[in-house]
Design a protein around this nucleic acid. Structure first.
Length: 261
DNA sequence: CATCTCACACGCGTCTCCGT
DNA sequence: ACGGAGACGCGTGTGAGATG
């Protein structure tokens, strides 16, 4: 996505709202769709997506799931061998089994990032309910205001977006039923945590999942309302800010004792 | 086997939107 | 109107795979 603020004044209004279909945004949509936090298709990055797009192998994100029919053509690309192509095809196949939250995030609806996508998944439980929801209903989702609700509503009213979503589901993209999580009674219920630095024992995503499983909300930036900062190696400005605000700093050992105990 | 390219992981800063 | 928090782009370091 191109930030409006990075555009010259006279181009600021040039952004279209085509979502999954608009030609100017197609490659951006593709790149976002395969990214780690969305559908997580390993090995298929920006470079190959653009090449495949330029050679007409893919036009929309739904075409990614037809790429296995073009394996012979793919190996003819420079720097792309049989092994890489097989890895890409395997990764595409693996991505068919996902979660509703990831799928919503992958759609690239403006204003809907990872957190909001998760909230939508929790709130609506299935894609059809979300797609059918009115602006008034959408606004009832946590962290969703008028603007995001309207953008989401419009997204699901665009025929080409519906087409792509239908094609994705027809290609076999599916997700498990959403489990409604009740955070009440969990040890970290009502707390907001932030993670900084690298952890030795696990990836940050894993640490985030563990904290969420204990009822905590995990945020990306420190504020006065933050309960605690989980600080690993090479912690940067977040640690400084947390210290300044007098926020509790939790080291990896203490964190492990907490999540395992 | 050395080199090159690409994708990924992660941190950080900025901007925007939401809720109060 | 303001502060909090999320979205997003950019920069850097690292590892895997392709090529010659």
């Amino acid at each position: 996505m191109i930030r409006l603020s990075s555009l010259p004044e006279d181009e600021a209004l040039a952004r279209c709202t085509g979502g999954l279909y608009c030609p100017a945004q197609q490659t951006e949509a593709l790149i976002h769709f395969v990214s780690r936090r969305a559908m997580d298709i390993d090995g298929l990055g920006e470079r190959w997506l653009i090449s495949f797009f330029e050679h007409g192998l893919i036009k929309t994100v739904a075409d990614i799931y037809q790429l296995h029919n073009h394996a012979d053509e793919m190996v003819t690309f420079e720097k792309l061998g049989e092994k890489s192509v097989q890895n890409i095809i395997n990764a595409i196949e693996a991505s068919k089994h996902t979660t509703l939250a990831r799928f919503i995030y992958a759609l690239g609806i403006r204003g809907v990032g990872e957190g909001t996508a998760q909230n939508f998944a929790q709130q609506f439980g299935d894609l059809d309910s979300l797609m059918a929801a009115s602006i008034e209903t959408l606004i009832k989702t946590p962290d969703v205001g008028e603007i995001t609700a309207e953008l989401t509503y419009e997204f699901f009213r665009a025929p080409h977006n519906i087409e792509v979503i239908t094609a994705l589901r027809a290609a076999g993209v599916h997700w498990d039923k959403v489990e409604q999580v009740a955070s009440e009674g969990l040890p970290l219920d009502g707390q907001t945590w932030v993670i900084t630095g690298a952890l030795d024992s696990m990836a940050r995503d894993e640490a985030k999942a563990k904290l969420q499983a204990l009822g905590a909300k995990v945020s990306g930036s420190i504020s006065a309302k933050t309960t605690a900062l989980l600080a690993g190696d090479k912690a940067g400005s977040k640690l400084t800010k947390a210290e300044k605000l007098g926020i509790k700093i939790v080291g990896e050992e203490e964190f492990l004792a907490l999540v395992e105990g």
